[in-house]
Design a binder for these strands. Structure first.
Length: 814
DNA sequence: GGGTGTCTGCTTTTT
DNA sequence: GCAGACACCC
């Protein structure tokens, strides 16, 4: 007991000392992404690794703290936040609206648990969805605590924590502790093999689709045996379930798991091994979950099993920011929390510290159109600030130009580019902005491109290392067999497959054995033997050489580095750079196997130099971030809300899209700028588009409509589309509003009559109306002559715009 | 086994 | 409109 108190008190002293004491610190209120410098105090004793016995009730220190009004770190919280932090016992749901200090609550809560001595660092389970969130949480706890918290070994993503648990008890679920974690690419190659083995037409039933299907089963915690009959039918003429089973068998043989298995196998472990679960219950005194609204069924079950022990489960989330339904997230989990955990306390955080009044009002009004929500009312003490703007532009090109101009103007007024972001619905929208920004020399960065470890060169290099580390890694071996090209193509691979299957050997061993037979031609045999000998040699060096050097050696001697040096394409240089980065990253791990164990789970894009740039990213990617100024282009029916989501998921889909709009708006601190274009090229075809219904969802009094000066130059064709939007007061005449009033189900599909030179052209009804030679008028391209009719598309030779393919619905006969 | 031409099918994305 | 996958040919 004495030790515990000493530990807690020492911690307390550190926590106090680490708080900035200037007056400004009083306003150090929760602001995600705030630039509070991480203060680290040099403490002689590694406090957090000190053992502490069971916490005692009502220690002198605790009582003294209570009299003094609690430790300083609690004073920085508002009453609701403080309640969320101090309610340690029992289930707790923190409904944290956008910008209300969610991360602050989570991190302070952890600090509070540690400071009060209720639990030691390794007795806290803190789960996030992304590595980034985990890292941020760790850093912020460290700032509060004033020292490193390496001892918090159970702070991480669902997947990383599961992997950790699974490695400890791998044998219990039929795996070896050094199992490989496959990524999507490996997964798909494996599934292709399974599909082929079942004699299913790969073209009609692509492996991607099966991967997606299996993934969604795993998201729901469904094993091959539990696949509902109807869903098994949905792939490969009813072979979906069989393929799933076959795939799982293959994984076990390969001693591998995919991402979904990390959860599934851990769940199985908990269910089938009560003593393992009991051990977990003993260990975890407190469980904290970030972004609870994003949990899927498997994660929910996982949490529920773990939380059964001590019931000290604290989930933080915002139902209004649930935007991952399409990948299995169940908003239901958060809506149902109080039923799932009887006696649960719910704390609402509604005081927003991020956005100005008008932005908050606009976002709140927008989201209030959703039905499935718990309901929160965000408020701020800050000023009203600028109204969000809505700007209509002619097409996506003008949209990019308008955004570029705005950013330039802001920049001239001293606005940081880092504080501006363009948030799009779909990544294809990014290109236009990139092109424009390049043209005007505006520095930008695209966030959310291909992940570092998804790049071909990284995966190749990792495959080499995996082969060195584990002879039986067939997928890795298959990948590098002929990379670089060494004349071992499909024929040799097929030979290896057959031989391996016959002998029950992994590919590498099959290759070795095959070289001793006459079944392989001399040339490939020599090459293959050389490759195998190389691997044997490299493997012998594992313990002799630092793993970094070994990696370099392998990449050089295999000819892999040379392959890219010989490559004359412009990307080659960057790829070599990435390889270097990979080797550099290995430094942080003690040996090759621990590097490989972690790489698939935690490897991220290493964003190099931090320079002042505009961010371009998807709305999904922007969740959890904030910017001074946010640009929200593409608010058009069909694009946002996405027609596909509407078609597939109806009202639920629409509500998820609306939440995405809410997320977009609430990223802005001071300025939100919405755009919609009248014409957009979608899948190569120009389409006339309507303003998004979400624009109609905005409260007129908090929004300003901006007529873009440049737009009028296109007036000749565009007048009709802008007519209703000159003044916001006339918003109730916008197409979106009228549509809503009519309750019509037509969603921006009908071609509006176009006004040309004062006369209204006949509305076309279909491609049948058109024949080659027909004169037509298009809203964007003007007059032209039909050259060819192709379904509902027309090849038109425009008088001024040249040859284009256009949808017949968007041209008028002349 | 490697290069060229045609066909298809296109949100969001973490781990 | 364009990328990625596949088939076909050398």
């Amino acid at each position: 007991m004495r030790v515990r108190r000493a530990w807690a008190e020492k911690f307390q002293a550190v926590a106090w000392a680490s708080q900035p004491s200037s007056g400004a610190s009083r306003h150090l209120l929760p602001q995600a992404g705030e630039g509070v410098p991480a203060r680290r105090l040099l403490v002689g004793v590694p406090l957090l690794s000190m053992p502490a016995p069971k916490p005692a009730q009502g220690s002198i220190a605790a009582r003294a703290r209570a009299l003094a009004g609690g430790p300083r770190y609690l004073e920085a919280l508002n009453p609701e936040q403080r309640e969320a932090v101090e309610t340690l016992e029992g289930p707790l749901l923190v409904l944290a609206g956008a910008g209300t200090g969610k991360t602050r609550v989570l991190t302070t809560r952890i600090a509070h648990i540690l400071a009060s001595g209720e639990a030691r660092p390794w007795e806290i389970l803190a789960v996030t969805f992304t590595n980034k969130a985990a890292r941020e949480m760790r850093e912020r706890v460290e700032t509060l605590v004033g020292q490193g918290v390496e001892a918090m070994q159970w702070l991480g993503t669902f997947h990383a924590i599961s992997a950790r648990m699974l490695r400890r008890h791998a044998e219990l679920v039929g795996l070896k502790p050094n199992f490989t974690i496959l990524d999507t690419d490996d997964q798909i190659r494996l599934l292709k093999q399974a599909i082929k083995a079942e004699n299913i037409d790969e073209k009609r039933w692509p492996a991607r689709q099966l991967a997606w299907q299996i993934d969604s089963w795993k998201n729901r915690g469904v094993t091959p045996a539990q696949v509902p009959a109807g869903e098994a039918m949905s792939f490969g003429n009813g072979k979906g379930g069989e393929l799933y089973a076959l795939y799982q068998e293959r994984l076990k043989i390969l001693n591998a798991v995919d991402f979904g298995d990390l959860l599934m196998e851990t769940l199985r472990l908990f269910r089938e091994q009560p003593d393992v679960l009991a051990e977990m219950h003993r260990r975890f005194k407190y469980i904290l979950v970030d972004e609870y609204q994003d949990t899927n069924v498997a994660q929910y079950l996982w949490l529920r099993l773990l939380a059964q022990g001590r019931r000290n489960l604290c989930c933080v989330g915002d139902d209004d920011q649930s935007v991952y339904g399409w990948r299995g997230a169940e908003v239901e989990n958060i809506l149902r929390f109080e039923k799932d955990f009887p006696g649960a306390k719910v704390v609402r955080l509604e005081r927003n510290y991020r956005s100005t009044g008008h932005i908050l009002a606009a976002a709140s009004h927008l989201i209030s159109h959703n039905e499935d929500r718990l309901g929160k009312t965000l408020f701020t003490d800050g000023g009203l600030g600028e109204k969000p703007t809505v700007t209509g532009v002619w097409d996506s090109e003008e949209e990019a130009r308008a955004v570029g101009d705005e950013i330039e103007a802001l920049r001239r007024r001293g606005h940081q580019l880092n504080e501006a972001a363009v948030l799009v619905r779909a990544s294809f929208q990014m290109r236009e902005f990139e092109e424009r920004f390049v043209a005007i020399g505006l520095p930008y960065r695209v966030i959310g491109g291909p992940r570092f470890y998804e790049r071909a060169e990284i995966r190749d290099a990792l495959a080499y290392l995996r082969c060195v580390a584990q002879e039986s890694d067939d997928l890795a071996f298959e990948r590098i067999l002929n990379t670089p090209k060494r004349g071992l193509g499909d024929a040799t691979l097929q030979l290896l497959f057959d031989y391996g299957r016959k002998q029950g050997l992994p590919l590498m061993l099959a290759a070795r054995a095959l070289c001793e037979t006459e079944e392989i031609k001399p040339k490939p045999r020599a090459t293959l033997r050389a490759l195998i000998d190389d691997f044997a040699r490299w493997r012998a060096l594992i313990d002799a050489k630092p793993h970094q050097e070994l990696a370099e050696l392998v990449l050089d001697e295999s000819g892999y580095t040379q392959m890219w040096k010989d490559d004359k394409t412009p990307e080659a240089e960057g790829r070599l750079e990435n390889l270097k980065e990979l080797v550099r990253a290995m430094e942080e791990f003690p040996d090759l196997s621990s590097f490989l164990e972690h790489v698939s789970l935690v490897m991220e894009n290493s964003e190099g130099a931090v320079s002042d740039r505009v961010s371009i990213m998807t709305l999904h990617g922007a969740k959890g971030l904030e910017f001074e100024t946010v640009f929200l282009p593409g608010w058009e029916e069909g694009l946002f809300p996405s027609q596909r989501t509407l078609d597939d998921n109806g009202r639920a889909g629409l509500e998820e899209e609306r939440r995405l709009a809410y997320v977009g708006l609430t990223r802005a601190r001071r300025r939100a700028k919405i755009y919609f274009a009248t014409n957009r090229r979608i899948r190569g075809l120009w389409q006339t588009t309507m303003p998004s219904r979400f624009i109609d969802d905005l409260p007129a009094k908090n929004v300003e409509v901006v007529e873009r000066a440049g737009a009028s130059q296109y007036g000749a064709y565009g007048v009709s589309r802008f007519a209703g939007l000159d003044r916001y007061s006339s918003v109730y005449e916008t197409p979106g509003w009228k549509r809503a009033q009519n309750g019509s189900q037509q969603r921006g599909r009908s071609a509006a009559a176009t006004v040309i030179e004062g006369r209204v052209l006949a509305k076309s009804t279909g491609a049948a109306d058109f024949t080659p030679g027909q004169r037509v008028m298009h809203a964007k391209f003007g007059p032209g002559t039909v050259a060819r009719v192709d379904g509902d598309k027309l090849a038109v030779e425009f008088d001024h715009a040249g040859a284009k393919m256009v949808k017949s619905a968007f041209v008028e006969r002349m």
